[in-house]
Design a protein around this nucleic acid. Structure first.
Lengths: 210, 210
DNA sequence: TATATTAGCGAACGTCATTCGGTATTGACA
DNA sequence: TGTCAATACCGAATGACGTTCGCTAATATA
C-alpha cells in the first residue's frame, strides 16, 4: 500500500497560498499551483477534493491567527473608544487589506461557490462569537447589558465581507477611515461614554442612573 | 449599411435578466441567454462587449428603481425609528433577498471581475449619496449635525454587499432581523430619541427639548 | 440600382477544473 | 525477503465556458 505524504500535502498548501495571494481565487489555476508544488495537476486531487477545499484549507488557519491576534490587540487597549477602534480597524482595514490578499481570495471563492458545494460556515460562526465576546467585554456598564452583541458581530462581519469584495475592484474611496470613526462613535454611546457632547450627555446619564 | 435592432438588444437584456435571476452570474451562460433571446451566442457580442457589461446593464435600472421606491417608502414613515427600520430593511432584507436574486448576481459578477474590467462605481456613489441624504433628512435634531452621513451610508452599502454575498450560500442564520433592530437602536440615539425604555426616554426628551 | 457597412451565425480557440486509465511505488503480511 | 494489493502519481482526455474569426447576406444610403 502506498501512503499520502505530508510533504506533498504541505507543498500544495504552500503553493496554493502563494498563488492565491498573487492572483486571487479566480485567476489562480490548479496547474500553476501544481507546478509550484512540484507535482501534476491531477495529483492535487488526491489530496484535496476541489479548488474550493484548497482555498478554505489555506484561509482558515491564516484567518484564525488574525482574529486571535486582533483579540489580544483589543485587550491591550484601555479605553472603550480605543478598544472599538482597534477592533474595527482590524476587521475593516488591516485584515481585508493585507498584502497577501487572502480576504479578497475568499470572497471570490464564496461568491462563485454554489449551495451544493456545502460550504461549512463554522469559521464564520466562531468569528462572530469571538467578536461578540470582545464587544461584551468592552462594555461593562449596565446600560449596554440589553444589547444583542451577536447581532452586532453579525453586521460587522457582513461589512467585513463587503470591504473584501470592494477591495477586489481597487476602487475604494478611502472613506473607510471615516466609516470606522462614525461606527466607533455610535457604539461608544452604548457605554454612556465617548459622547460627542459630553456636557449634555452627562446630564442625561445622571438622570438615567438616578 | 445594416443597423442594430432595438428589438434584438432588448431581447438579449430580457433573456439575460431571466437567466441571471434563475442561475446567478456564474452559472448563467452566454449560450443560454442567446438561445432564450433567439439569436446566436456570437451575435450577443455585437450588442455588448462582455458578460460583465450585460449584467451591469440589467442590474442598474432594476437597482435604481429599488432605491427610488425605498426612498419614497422611508419618506412616508413618520417617526425616526420607523424611517430607519424601513431603510435598513429595504437595504439589508428586501432588496438583497428579492426572488429575482439580482443582488447575488451582481455580487458574483463584482467578485469575479478584475481591475482591468474597469467597473464604473458611479452607481455605488449615486446610491451612497441617496442614502446619506435620506439619513440626513431623517435626523433633524442639531445633535446629529456633526455626523458624517456619507460614511454611514458607505458602511450600510458594504453591509449590503455582505448580505448579498452570504445569501449566495443560502446559509444565513436569520440574525438579520436582530441586526437591523440593533442598528436602528444605535442610530436612533443620534436623534436623542429611540431609547429602549420609552418611559424614561420621554422624560429625557422632555428635558432636552425644554 | 449599386455599394459599403455590419448584423448575424457556425465553427474554432484558448483556458479551466476535473476525471480517466495506466503505471509503478510502497506498506503490510507471508 | 518476496508477494500482493492499495493507491500515489501522471499524461491525456473531457466537458464547459467566454470570446473571436471568417464568412454570408441584409440593408441604409447615395
Amino acid at each position: 500500500m502506498r501512503v499520502k505524504r505530508q510533504a506533498v500535502h504541505d507543498a500544495i498548501l504552500l503553493a496554493a497560498e502563494q498563488e492565491f495571494a498573487e492572483n486571487g481565487y479566480v485567476k489562480a489555476t490548479i496547474s500553476k499551483i501544481a507546478r509550484r508544488a512540484g507535482t501534476a495537476p491531477s495529483n492535487v486531487y488526491v489530496y484535496f477534493q476541489s479548488k474550493l477545499e484548497i482555498v478554505l484549507a489555506v484561509y482558515e488557519p491564516w484567518f484564525k491567527r488574525q482574529i486571535l491576534d486582533l483579540e489580544q490587540a483589543v485587550a491591550d487597549k484601555t479605553t472603550v473608544e480605543q478598544k472599538l477602534t482597534s477592533l474595527l480597524e482590524g476587521l475593516w482595514k488591516y485584515i481585508p487589506h493585507d498584502t497577501r490578499g487572502l480576504t479578497t481570495t475568499l470572497v471570490q471563492a464564496l461568491a462563485t461557490a454554489t449551495p451544493q458545494d456545502k460550504y461549512n460556515p463554522e469559521l464564520l460562526r466562531w468569528t462572530e462569537h469571538k467578536i461578540a465576546q470582545v464587544l461584551s467585554d468592552t462594555f461593562r456598564s449596565e446600560s449596554a447589558s440589553s444589547v444583542d452583541f451577536l447581532a452586532l458581530a453579525h453586521m460587522i462581519m457582513f461589512t467585513f465581507d463587503g470591504v473584501g469584495l470592494r477591495h477586489n475592484l481597487r476602487q475604494s474611496i478611502n472613506r473607510e477611515a471615516q466609516m470606522i470613526t462614525e461606527m466607533v462613535a455610535l457604539l461608544s454611546r452604548l457605554d454612556g461614554e465617548g459622547e460627542k457632547h459630553p456636557d449634555r450627555r452627562d446630564e442625561l446619564e445622571h438622570q438615567l442612573t438616578e
